[in-house]
């Protein structure tokens, strides 16, 4: 067992982990942050996607120990400071981009990452960018729309700022 310190959503958190403790288990069991989910054991479903030092990763395929000292952003950190939904979250709400909600945390984190790297993606780029995320409810139709809508909102915000 070793002590791991991570900055999660801007807050310093620490807990203990074994060598084989995965980041997702550390978040869920040690830090009691259950927003990040586990939907498979072959690193494919993406329900566990979080950002580590600004990069999108599958928290089920990263050891907690590897993240000692890292900045981690989870779904719990995606809302605005006043508690209202962030742009990507709001787009999911407006476009009905979620049903059961289980894959949603990973979807939101992946789309935030797609838009950070490519602010105006085509539909094909969005679909390709979601290759690491499985949704069984929505057929992805409204998830893609949510991504497009979030991109438009962000573009509008950038324009307004200029």
């Amino acid at each position: 067992m070793s002590t791991i310190s991570i900055t999660v959503n801007g807050q310093q958190k620490s807990g203990t982990a074994q060598g084989n403790t995965l980041l997702v288990d550390f978040l869920r069991s040690e830090l009691k942050m259950t927003g990040t989910h586990v939907g498979c054991d072959t690193s494919q479903c993406g329900a566990c996607v979080v950002h580590v030092n600004g990069e999108s990763v599958k928290s089920c395929t990263v050891f907690a120990s590897a993240c000692d000292g890292a900045e981690v952003t989870t779904i719990e950190g995606m809302a605005n400071d006043d508690g209202t939904l962030g742009i990507v979250q709001q787009a999911f709400h407006e476009e009905h981009g979620l049903q059961c909600g289980f894959c949603t945390p990973g979807m939101v984190m992946s789309i935030a990452d797609i838009l950070r790297n490519n602010p105006q993606p085509t539909e094909a780029e969005i679909r390709e960018g979601l290759k690491g995320n499985i949704c069984r409810c929505t057929g992805y139709h409204n998830i893609v729309k949510a991504a497009q809508s979030a991109a438009a909102t962000m573009a509008g915000a950038r324009q307004a700022a200029e």
Partner: peptide, 9 residues
């Protein structure tokens, strides 16, 4: 290769 998350690691 894989997906964006796999490519990041």
């Amino acid at each position: 290769i894989g997906d964006p998350q796999v490519r990041n690691r």
